[in-house]
Write a protein that binds this DNA or RNA. Sequence first.
DNA 1: AATAAAATGAGAATTATTCTCAAATTTGCT
DNA 2: AGCAAATTTGAGAATAATTCTCATTTTATT
Lengths: 127, 127
Amino acid sequence: MAGNYSVQRETIYQALKSTKIHPSADWVYARCREKMPGIGLATVYRNLEALVEQGRAIKINVAQGKDRYDADISPHFHTVCPVCGKVSDCETDEDIVALLERECGKRGYQGWSLVFTDVCPDCRTNK
Amino acid sequence: MAGNYSVQRETIYQALKSTKIHPSADWVYARCREKMPGIGLATVYRNLEALVEQGRAIKINVAQGKDRYDADISPHFHTVCPVCGKVSDCETDEDIVALLERECGKRGYQGWSLVFTDVCPDCRTNK
DNA sequence: AATAAAATGAGAATTATTCTCAAATTTGCT
DNA sequence: AGCAAATTTGAGAATAATTCTCATTTTATT
């Protein structure tokens, strides 16, 4: 297999690793442009997908339109704010992780995703 | 509060209740047009959202673009096929449900969603 | 260094969803 | 039942997110 590396891809990966906000493609694009003004949006989309395929990132699908990405591939839970769509990490109970991993294996599934709904502090305040 | 009823809304709800495929808006649209040829696509989108707000349906966010809806509002798990995006119900372990409900309450969250990744039989065959 | 393979940037194209608004339906009242 | 106010509809335009195309550049292989 040839290829599999480009300056852009690593820049994108670094940008993704640098944050815990579970950014969308356009956030990553803006971040990358600071270091690499010529980078294209399509390149960002392409490489985020590539990172997911390579197992270096995960994609989180939530309402509010945009797909979100996360370079933290360890098994963990997320919350989504039903008002603004913000995705956050939340306390991840290791016993539940173990249970889900076991359940997943038992059923022959490839993975799981546990997402809680939680109005975020910002949206709770502005209400 | 006035309003809150229309022939269209009930037709859309019936269409959604009639299937277990967790359809997207366009599927519901096509289904409704059989009984009500003049119905508009925007009406379907509007009412699916309304049903979710009323707690009569849930929205399932998965990759592959389209949002999916489900008139089954009982707590249950889903699988998503990473190849074709199909959403299915899967065996829902009541002990895990109870655990997640408890965890949710303990944390003050409003709800949870547990989705497993599983290549569906069709995609397993065509490979 | 030469060649093949893969990735890029730009913008066009596609897809899903939301918005706008005049007309129609439904609701609440008398 | 009849009427006004409120809500909802259908059609198509508008928006937003993502994917595609393709000529050029970068990376990998010899």
